[in-house]
């Protein structure tokens, strides 16, 4: 009988150890990336690293400010282009779509999330980039091209989380508004969307996280020039693409500088994640 209790105890502690795997991995990622990157930031100086304008590893210049600007501009573009479409689509699914149609649209959006990012990048390169080059001028490889691709790529994240938070609302809210004589759109705009605000906000923050973190899609359409952009048609380099392009041949200080870029990325993402989780929990 004691043996039996003993046998039941093994799984209990085993499951606890397994459950710690996510935490362990998160800790390992943070520790290893910091160990690799921090020495270089210390060597260059925090401000010179973050706000330095020149990135020339062969000459020992490690300033990532142009890439921070690149990341911010491409992400901003993606949000401006993608979020309105995504929110409309979420409202469509939650409020307007007949059942048969939402049964088609939902898996389609899921499929959109599953398409490899390299395929998006390639499609951007052969489809979007020439359009921009021919109709708007410039090299085509640009902030605009990256923004368009990222706008498509963040759609699934923003749509699905916003839709869930819209569907989670009490039907009484809607009935109440209808009872006061509001039209469907008035109800959505002044009752439903405000009520689902925190979930929608979280979806946008997670969308921003996705855009900031994307590498392979933008590597192919941004042109990757390390310089401050002067228009949306200028090529830029982002934090992620900086790592993606140079990691293949970097060594020594240079490689550490890429890990340091990773630290900046990781910190931004952790802040965005925490904001999103806070926004979801705060009901």
């Amino acid at each position: 009988m004691k043996m039996k209790n003993f046998g039941e105890r093994i799984p209990q502690s085993l499951f606890f150890i397994i459950a710690l795997s996510a935490l362990t991995v998160l800790a390992l990622i943070t520790v290893f990336i910091f160990i690799e990157g921090v020495p270089l930031i210390a060597k260059v100086g925090f401000f010179k690293f973050i706000f330095g304008m020149k990135w020339a590893p062969s000459q020992g210049f490690y300033g990532i400010f142009p890439m921070i600007v690149g990341t911010i501009s491409v992400t901003l573009g993606a949000i401006i282009l993608g979020v309105p479409v995504a929110l409309c689509c979420a409202i469509f699914l939650a409020e307007f779509a007949p059942r048969w149609l939402s049964d088609i649209v939902r898996p389609a959006i899921q499929l959109l999330a599953g398409i490899p990012s390299v395929v998006y990048g390639f499609w951007g390169l052969i489809f979007i980039v020439p359009l921009i080059r021919n109709y708007l001028g410039g090299p085509g490889l640009s902030i605009l091209a990256g923004s368009i691709i990222l706008a498509i790529m963040i759609l699934p994240t923003v749509i699905s989380i916003s839709e869930v938070s819209l569907l989670a609302l009490s039907p009484l809210l809607k009935e109440g508004a209808f009872a006061l004589g509001a039209t469907h759109w008035q109800t959505i705009r002044s009752v439903l969307v405000p009520a689902a605000k925190s979930g929608i906000l979280a979806s946008i923050i997670l969308g921003i996280g996705r855009a900031v973190g994307e590498t392979m899609a933008v590597i192919m359409v941004l042109g990757n020039a390390v310089a401050l952009p002067n228009s949306i048609l200028s090529p830029v380099r982002t934090l992620t693409t900086n790592i993606g392009i140079e990691m293949g041949y970097a060594s020594g200080d240079h490689q550490q500088a890429l890990f340091a870029t990773g630290i900046v990325l990781l910190v931004i993402i952790m802040i965005l994640n925490s904001l999103a989780q806070y926004s979801i929990r705060r009901k």
């Binding site: 996510a22 935490l23 998160l26 390992l28 790592i243 990773g262 990325l265």
Partner: peptide, 16 residues
């Protein structure tokens, strides 16, 4: 931890 892992960019996973 799990939610945070879900948000980490793949390039950072690559570095790790």
């Amino acid at each position: 931890s799990a939610e945070s892992l879900a948000g980490i960019p793949s390039i950072v996973y690559g570095l790790f």
